[in-house]
């Protein structure tokens, strides 16, 4: 449809007009077209408030808490544990559970490729600008988030207790224990909620609904793995409770 068509409805056979007298400059009194208002000054005020508020918050926080500075770098003394910055702790945590090429290269690559392809898989314009699109979408996100937190925590704990790479070391080749098994488990955990969505919904789920499931799985997997690596990994990169770390190690010191 061209823009020209959009301006007037075509083929209208309307031959009359309804007219009413309104006591104001325009019939859109106190209301712009499509419920709009002038951006000035409200947007300027909001932006200024956000800028000042976040700056003030940052200054106050900086007055209360000092940035960490440990001893001079020494290549001969390894810190225990040696951790990457917090936003890479999800990656470092994955390295504990599978072959490094899978954890460090393939899965992050798949995640970025997925993010980039989202708007080309779900290209319907419907419900843009609405949180979770629909009430059903909200339900999908809630259940998927709960499922991901439980299943990924379970995966970390189970894999930590019974690591197939160690238990099956002499039975199966490394390729299977380090890549095929954890890769299949991950794929299964990601695909399962999509299958559940297809079974529970009567009609075919929309692209948006599938994206809601997959993005929620990705995001909450990232949250679980990052928190596990950042808060729950102590000396020897073993799992501990954050408040019960041995050797006086405090994970928050490494921010």
């Amino acid at each position: 449809m061209t823009t020209k068509d959009r301006s007037f409805s075509r083929g209208s056979r309307k031959t009359y007009n309804l007219v009413e007298i309104v006591k104001s400059p325009t019939t859109m009194k106190d209301r712009g077209p499509e419920n709009t208002i002038f951006a000035f000054p409200i947007v300027a005020i909001l932006e200024l408030a956000l800028a000042l508020g976040s700056t003030l918050f940052l200054i106050l926080f900086s007055l209360l808490k000092d940035a960490p500075l440990e001893e001079l770098a020494n290549p001969l003394i390894t810190t225990d544990p040696a951790k990457a910055p917090w936003y890479f702790m999800g990656l470092q945590e994955m390295l504990e559970h599978m072959h490094p090429t899978l954890a460090g290269i393939i899965l992050p690559g798949v995640a970025v490729a997925f993010l980039i392809s989202i708007p080309f898989i779900d290209y319907s314009k419907e419900n843009a600008g609405v949180w979770f699109s629909t009430a059903y979408g909200k339900k999908i996100v809630g259940w998927t988030a709960l499922y991901t937190v439980i299943s990924m925590t379970g995966f970390v704990l189970l894999d930590n207790a019974f690591p197939p790479r160690e238990l099956l070391r002499d039975v199966l080749p490394n390729l299977i224990t380090q890549s095929v098994i954890p890769g299949s488990v991950m794929t299964f955990l990601v695909v399962l909620p999509v299958l559940v969505l297809m079974r529970t919904k009567k009609e075919k789920p929309t692209a948006r609904e599938v994206m809601l499931v997959l993005f929620t799985v990705l995001f909450f997997t990232g949250v679980v793995l990052t928190l596990t690596g950042f808060l729950f990994r102590g000396p020897g990169f073993e799992l501990y409770l954050p408040w019960a770390m041995p050797n006086g190690y405090n994970p928050l010191d490494g921010l």
Partner: peptide, 16 residues
């Protein structure tokens, strides 16, 4: 900052 935290975080990070 070239402290232990910096050195080992970058060593671990780039090893990926």
């Amino acid at each position: 900052p070239w402290d232990q935290l910096a050195f080992w975080a970058i060593t671990v990070g780039t090893s990926v």
